[in-house]
């Protein structure tokens, strides 16, 4: 009757391919030379190096862009989630699949296509010049990277909010209206508080990949553009300083775990205060 054993192969897999690699990265991050395992030299130098303003700026820009794209996807995505959730089941299934379908095309290629749209001779500049303005520099700057992030991660914000919204019992809204709430009050008192779990999931699902990306920044920000993800890539693949690269990875992980802890706490706090009302 006991079926626990069927998970043992995976438990072994977890140890070899999830736990051991992370321990190795941590080990790289806190050691200096990579001579032999017997004469490891423990040090915090790799972390100290990161305090250099040069690198700190990279972290700052990464976090700033990730936050901006999270806020923008939330502002753009929430109304869509609501509009679709209010449709009839047959129609909303089609609409929501239309938001998933773009993800089936290779995301590098989709991001690359923005070069065509945003370039000097691109469609958008063509429209702008037809309106009588000079061509603008739309590529290889913060704005282009931000656009790439919003473009790529918008569905990640819409989907979790949508799936929470469709599950909300319609009679809740009706009873609020019955008790005298107007449309705006129904939204602020019922819909919004109940959709918070979806918002939280959406925020984490957008912020995490945004803060760690190195592809969007490379394609739309140009070869010199540096985000923390690019820094890790550079250290591992081009500079070959695995110790420093590992230290940055650890910092990135800590950053993300902290964000998750904060958002999770926000979520439970909300639940607690709702109980009081």
């Amino acid at each position: 009757m006991k079926m626990k054993w069927t998970s043992y192969p995976y438990l072994l897999w977890i140890i070899i391919f999830i736990l051991v690699p992370l321990v190795l990265v941590l080990l790289y991050a806190i050691t200096a030379t990579e001579e032999h395992i017997s004469n490891l030299e423990f040090t915090l130098d790799n972390f100290n190096r990161f305090l250099d303003p040069k690198y700190f700026d990279v972290l700052w820009v990464s976090v700033k862009l990730a936050l901006q794209s999270t806020v923008m996807t939330l502002i753009l995505g929430y109304p869509i989630a609501i509009l679709i959730a209010k449709e009839k089941p047959s129609k909303r299934n089609i609409l929501i699949s239309l938001f998933i379908i773009p993800m089936w095309m290779n995301f590098l290629l989709r991001t690359y296509a923005w070069l065509t749209l945003l370039g000097k001779n691109g469609i958008i500049n063509f429209i702008i010049s037809q309106l009588g303005f000079g061509p603008l520099d739309l590529l290889y700057n913060d704005g282009a990277v931000l656009l790439g992030m919003v473009y790529n991660f918008l569905p990640f914000m819409i989907l979790p909010i949508y799936s929470v919204l469709v599950k909300i019992d319609n009679s809740l809204m009706e009873s609020a209206e019955d008790l005298g709430a107007n449309k705006f009050q129904v939204f602020t008192k019922i819909t919004l508080p109940l959709s918070i779990p979806g918002i939280i999931t959406g925020i984490t699902m957008v912020f995490m990949p945004a803060v760690s990306t190195f592809v969007i920044s490379r394609l739309l920000g140009g070869g010199q553009y540096m985000l923390i993800g690019n820094l890790v890539e550079q250290q591992f693949l081009w500079v070959g300083d695995w110790h420093f690269g590992s230290a940055i990875s650890i910092i990135m992980m800590i950053f993300i775990l902290l964000t998750m802890a904060i958002t999770a706490k926000f979520d439970t706090q909300k639940k607690g205060s709702r109980g009081l009302w």
Partner: peptide
């Protein structure tokens, strides 16, 4: 993040 899984 993918990149952390990748480097580990």
């Amino acid at each position: 993040p993918d990149i952390v899984t990748a480097v580990s």
